[in-house]
């Protein structure tokens, strides 16, 4: 039935899926755009309460993980299996560190009583309530995508180390990588919109 495996088609399917992810986050960015224009001052106030250190650090490690995923594909193409595995391991490690950071960050905010429907938050101005509401929804959804991305990277890792992914057939790795890059891409926009609003 399958005369030849159409790798390009598989990649295309993955891209189409990524488009749906872009639009999924897009819906939230519509909300962000509207509320930012309405509550600019409150958003700036809210942004100052987020930790720039955590945001910047997470940006750097996500960029690093993206780089290592891309490098692992180059390694596979060159037939350097060991380098590919190492690069993927770094990416997965970075993803885990990202999640731990997020956990600490959220935990600290929740400790200060800032979480949806909390007395502290509803006591603040409407704009700040919306800012933190969006913060939790958007970074939460993003975190969920990090988890899915990690699972995909793990699958790819096993496929590389078991030799199912080779220089001539690496679409599984490529597609997992594409997903991971997209998660990174979305974070590139989340970072300035929340941590750097002024």
């Amino acid at each position: 039935m399958k005369a030849s495996v159409d790798e390009t088609g598989k990649k295309m399917g993955m891209w189409l899926f990524l488009y749906t992810e872009i639009i999924l986050f897009g819906g939230l960015f519509v909300l962000y755009a509207v509320y930012f224009s309405r509550f600019t001052a409150d958003f700036i106030q809210g942004g100052k309460q987020l930790s720039l250190f955590f945001g910047a650090f997470n940006t750097v490690i996500l960029l690093l993980s993206s780089f290592t995923v891309a490098a692992s594909i180059t390694a596979v193409q060159k037939g350097q299996k060991k380098a590919a595995v190492m690069n993927l391991l770094v990416s997965i490690l970075c993803g885990v560190v990202f999640l731990i950071n997020k956990y600490v960050e959220w935990g600290e905010k929740i400790h200060h009583g800032i979480y949806p429907n909390s007395d502290t938050l509803t006591g603040m101005s409407s704009g700040q309530n919306i800012f933190f509401g969006l913060y939790y929804v958007i970074t939460g959804l993003h975190g969920l995508h990090i988890i899915i991305g990690l699972i995909l990277l793990l699958v790819a890792l096993f496929a590389v180390s078991s030799g199912r992914v080779t220089a001539s057939r690496f679409m599984l790795l490529e597609n997992s990588g594409l997903y991971w890059h997209l998660v990174d891409l979305i974070w590139i926009f989340i970072f300035p919109l929340f941590y750097l609003v002024i």
Partner: peptide, 10 residues
């Protein structure tokens, strides 16, 4: 930044 990720990493 996004374009760079898109063009080279992806």
């Amino acid at each position: 930044k996004g374009s760079l990720v898109l063009l080279y990493f992806m």
